[in-house]
C-alpha cells in the first residue's frame, strides 16, 4: 500500500527534557490510527511534529514525499496537504463559520471567492452545520464548533487528517456528534491519525492502536487485541486506569 507518512528515528527535546525518543511510524494511505497513552507521554507532540507545529531535532519526517526541514516552502506545502483538528477548536472568532472555511481556500489555494464559497458550503453541509454558515463561532456550541473545525480542515482536501484530542474539551453530551462525524469521515476512506481516549471510537474505526508512554511508542496492535490484552505492563496499567469508571 502507498505510504503517506514515514517517520524515522524521530527525537525531540524541550530544553533538556527528552520528549520523543526514537519514534518510528509508517502510515499507509487510507489507514486509521488511534494514538493513546497517559498525559505527558508525547502523543500530541508527535502528531504536532507531523505538520511542524513542533520542530524535531533528530530523525526524519517525510509526508507525502516531502521531507520536513527548516525550508518554509516545504513546511507550507505539507501543511496544506495535512488537515488538523485541535482540542480547543481554534476557530477564528472574528470570522463567520463560512469565512473560517473559505479562508485557506482563498489565500492558500488562491481560489476565486465564488468557488471557495461553494466548496466551503459543500463541506459545511457534510458536517450538518450549513444552516449556521453565517454565524460567528461564539454563537455555536462546542460540538458545533468542533464540526466547523473539521469542515475547515476538510475544505483543503487534505490527504491526511490529524486529530489532537478532538473531544476532550467538549461537554459530555456533545462528544458523540463529533465522533459520529469522524466515523463518517473514516468510512469514506480518509487517512486519519487521532489522539484520543475514546475507546469505543478506536474499536470502531482504528486499523491500528499506538500506545505511547514517556515519549516512546510502547505498543502497536490492532484495537481488539490491544484493548483485550495489552502486552506491556504500562499498557495494562493505563487501560486499567481509564476503564475503572
Amino acid at each position: 500500500m502507498e505510504s503517506i507518512i514515514k517517520v524515522n528515528k524521530l527525537n525531540k527535546w524541550y530544553g533538556d527534557f527528552h520528549a520523543l525518543v526514537d519514534v518510528e511510524l509508517n502510515v499507509s494511505l487510507g489507514e486509521k490510527i488511534v494514538i493513546c497513552g497517559p498525559s505527558g507521554s508525547g502523543k500530541s507532540t508527535m502528531i504536532r511534529c507531523l505538520n511542524r507545529l513542533e520542530e524535531h531535532q533528530e530523525g526524519s519526517i517525510i509526508v507525502d514525499d516531502i521531507e520536513l526541514t527548516h525550508d518554509i516552502k516545504n513546511i507550507e506545502a505539507v501543511r496544506s496537504e495535512v488537515g488538523m483538528v485541535f482540542q480547543h477548536f481554534n476557530l477564528f472568532p472574528h470570522m463567520t463559520v463560512l469565512e473560517n472555511c473559505m479562508f485557506a481556500l482563498r489565500w492558500v489555494r488562491k481560489m476565486p471567492e465564488k468557488e471557495a464559497k461553494e466548496v466551503a458550503m459543500q463541506f459545511l453541509k457534510r458536517v450538518y452545520i450549513d444552516i449556521h454558515a453565517n454565524k460567528f463561532p461564539g454563537q455555536l456550541s462546542g460540538g458545533q464548533q468542533q464540526r466547523v473545525a473539521i469542515a475547515r480542515a476538510l475544505c483543503m482536501k487534505p490527504r491526511v487528517m490529524l486529530f489532537d484530542e478532538p473531544t476532550s474539551a467538549l461537554d459530555p453530551e456533545m462528544v458523540s456528534e463529533v465522533l459520529d462525524t469522524m466515523v463518517e469521515l473514516a468510512e469514506e476512506g480518509m487517512t486519519m491519525l487521532c489522539v484520543t481516549h475514546e475507546m469505543g471510537f478506536a474499536k470502531k474505526i482504528a486499523d491500528r492502536v499506538i500506545f505511547m508512554d514517556a515519549g516512546r511508542i510502547v505498543e502497536e496492535a490492532d484495537p481488539d487485541s490491544f484493548f483485550a490484552n495489552p502486552q506491556s505492563q504500562r499498557g495494562k496499567d493505563f487501560l486499567s486506569q481509564i476503564l475503572q469508571h
Binding site: N51, G83, M84, F86, N90, F92, F103, A104, A153
Partner: peptide
C-alpha cells in the same frame, strides 16, 4: 490562533 492558521498552510 497562530497554530490553526499555520496548520492550514497560511
Amino acid at each position: 490562533q497562530f497554530e490553526a492558521s499555520a496548520a492550514l498552510g497560511v
